[in-house]
Amino acid sequence: MGLNDDGVPSETDGRSPIRSEEFRPGATDPLHVVTDLLASELESSPLELNPPLGRVVDWDAVVTLLGRSGETGTVEFVRFTYGDYEVEIRGSGSVFLFQNSE
């Protein structure tokens, strides 16, 4: 599972992300990136996301799967649904936000 020439995950069945952001693994917490992307898309404050991100995804599990600072994770990416959106976080340092196709 890699990225195509545009940096979009190749396994997205031709879907393009509506938003994306890069982060530095081990230096930047991707939780902040995800929260900011969702808040921006929803035209909301990160503190006003409803439901709070912590009720939708177990962030400790995400960090464990992707790997902590200086560690290699057990998976290449984590994907979850938040309302009408699908969030994909890559251990390589990318976050993609897609319109949920279901």
Rank of each mutant, 00 (worst) to 15 (best):
89 I>E: 00
8 V>I: 15
62 V>N: 10
34 V>M: 05
34 V>G: 04
53 L>Y: 11
28 T>E: 06
53 L>Q: 14
73 G>S: 05
18 I>Q: 14
39 A>P: 01
65 L>Q: 13
50 N>C: 12
9 P>Q: 05
97 L>Q: 04
78 V>T: 12
101 S>G: 14
49 L>H: 04
43 E>M: 13
11 E>G: 13
50 N>R: 09
36 D>K: 11
97 L>R: 02
63 V>H: 05
43 E>L: 12
6 D>K: 07
44 S>G: 06
45 S>Y: 07
11 E>H: 12
100 N>P: 06
10 S>K: 14
83 G>W: 00
17 P>I: 01
78 V>C: 05
14 G>F: 03
5 D>C: 04
101 S>Q: 13
72 T>H: 06
9 P>T: 02
76 E>F: 07
71 E>G: 02
52 P>K: 12
14 G>S: 08
15 R>Y: 00
11 E>Q: 10
100 N>W: 08
2 G>Y: 03
68 R>V: 09
50 N>M: 09
30 P>K: 02
47 L>G: 10
37 L>E: 02
80 F>D: 04
95 V>T: 11
48 E>D: 13
64 T>M: 02
26 G>V: 03
102 E>K: 11
39 A>S: 14
2 G>T: 13
78 V>H: 00
38 L>E: 09
85 Y>Q: 05
7 G>D: 03
101 S>H: 10
26 G>T: 06
27 A>R: 15
92 S>E: 13
44 S>F: 01
67 G>C: 13
23 F>N: 06
89 I>L: 05
88 E>N: 06
99 Q>N: 11
55 R>S: 15
13 D>C: 11
40 S>C: 13
44 S>P: 01
93 G>I: 10
74 T>L: 09
89 I>F: 01
34 V>C: 04
100 N>C: 11
3 L>K: 09
39 A>L: 07
